[in-house]
Design a binder for these strands. Sequence first.
DNA 1: AAGTAGATGTCGCAC
DNA 2: GTGCGACGTCTACTT
Lengths: 231, 231
Amino acid sequence: MRLVIARCSVDYVGRLTAHLPEATRLLIHKADGSLLVHSDGGSYKPLNWMSPPATFEVAELSEEQQLAGVVECWEVKHRKSGDTLRVNIFEFVSDSHHELGVDPGLTKDGVEAHLQELLAAQIERLGDGHTLVRREHMTAIGPVDILARDAEGAAVAVEIKRRGEIDGVEQLTRYLELMNRDPLLAPVQGVFAAQEIKPQARTLAEDRGIRCLVLDYDDMRGEESGELRLF
Amino acid sequence: MRLVIARCSVDYVGRLTAHLPEATRLLIHKADGSLLVHSDGGSYKPLNWMSPPATFEVAELSEEQQLAGVVECWEVKHRKSGDTLRVNIFEFVSDSHHELGVDPGLTKDGVEAHLQELLAAQIERLGDGHTLVRREHMTAIGPVDILARDAEGAAVAVEIKRRGEIDGVEQLTRYLELMNRDPLLAPVQGVFAAQEIKPQARTLAEDRGIRCLVLDYDDMRGEESGELRLF
DNA sequence: AAGTAGATGTCGCAC
DNA sequence: GTGCGACGTCTACTT
């Protein structure tokens, strides 16, 4: 990994064209050929970048570039799409190289999968007398998170999200449309379950007769550990 | 901006919990308090990070940490959400600081906005005799990209995307539902226009009576410059 | 290879 | 601030 602090301007030509005027920035050139251009602010997204796999080349300086004060020009090109990042360097402030080796990578503990697991185990949160049929019930257009039956034995399809937004309601609507054509299931009641449901999503869901259920993650985890203690 | 190359492990606790085992990485600590943890590969997304605004603190080392060989522990906490990133540093390989100043920022030329502009100017691409009513026609749930009328004077609502996927069809469907309740507009014909339309999106659209129109960006730009030459 | 749904998405704009 | 759509989305996973 090469780290360069330099006064530079940057031009990107690819899916769009973009330009960064001259300023001092951090340039990160990774082992896989990718290049990141970072400023001292913003979030993790670079001002501009080239993703791997890419080729890195120090380009010949045109007379125009030399007159403008460019001391080095980098041309980073994507191997497949041909997208190009051109960096005009006016001054090197710092330039270093470090061997990092291959990273063991991130391990994460998801939330949505855990929510599904918890709700399947605590299915009565859907309402008294509810029973679980199965998780990931397959339909022609994809799996419904949870299929259950209410106290009267009627089918209940549950879509689980960490944050409930309109997209999730649309998804559940498509499932319900399909499932309600199946005489063995119909009528199917829809439940939109999430840690947090956005007002617009709730309005859309309720307008379509879909019930909204806010899941308290901490509470559910508490109940889980409580159950564990009993055994 | 502080740049540190260090052998470290990282733990994130926030919307999810995640862990990075000990390895040599690049740590970028920005002026706004944010921290990025990068490996020598992957794309522009860091292995782990904390977005601004955040507080940075060098934490006391527990006995356990000292025994494990930790020489310094950073605790970076998000000011609002309380999400925390803890970096255990086992060895400093490099440590430097640079003043970058405020960045003038990126200027870009978009594509979707340009497509809308071009289609409005070349409205006959919708079909012979079509006329433009307006761009960004407001409805109660948001603006329709283009409202036009066909040769017979019937309303045509156009949704434009760079890449046409199912979401876009759902969006247009919602607009059409609403617009078809307006006696001044109904019946409204839907057109889903994009540089590229995914098969599933096309199937869904056509199933709902929405016409699909593939836009040739280069061709449209060519016609635009051709028109410019005439004047 | 292509399609789909999720993301600690991030970013920018309108209300 | 919240809502909402776009993004050079990226990414992992399934078909």
